[in-house]
Design a protein around this nucleic acid. Structure first.
Lengths: 68, 68
DNA sequence: GTCTAAAGTGCATTATGCTGCACTTATAAT
DNA sequence: ATTATAAGTGCAGCATAATGCACTTTAGAC
């Protein structure tokens, strides 16, 4: 998953949970500006930022061997 | 996966492929210093850094729904 | 023990992510 | 067409990730 896909995935997941960017940013404890950049595939978030966003969305970050 | 686990996973994967930190850093196109910090769970790498490291190791970064 | 290669650490500099502010652009409802 | 809400953008300042250098520590080979 590249930045664009990760951003899109977060956006879709947030949409599924029916919360706004503003709400998620507050819950996650990050700036609205950063969340917007991440969802639009811009920027280059740190692992901390991603984890803060993933957690309230019920998502987890994984590192796996390609394919299998 | 938190920073520590991701670092450890990278370290183990690199070890499995029998390459040094120096080699991986060069192949990945990142600094040796950064790779060291990432493998030891220090620092807070960006998505770009992780992707650069993951690629030559045959790893992929994923974002998934927790559990299922 | 010595020697060597690999891995880890402290520190200063540079590059860039994170943030807040102001503004613009959708999108939807009335 | 107006209004309201959510989402996207440019920019500047601050915080910190990324880097290079010098050094120390560890792990193995001899």
């Amino acid at each position: 998953m590249n930045k664009e896909k990760i951003g899109y995935y977060i956006k879709m997941r947030r949409s599924l949970l029916s919360i706004t960017q503003n709400d998620l940013a507050e819950i996650a404890g990050i700036s609205l500006r950063s969340l917007k950049d991440i969802e639009t595939g811009k920027g280059n978030p740190t692992l901390n930022q991603l984890e803060k966003i993933a957690e309230p969305l019920g998502l987890v970050i994984k590192l796996e061997v390609r394919n299998g």
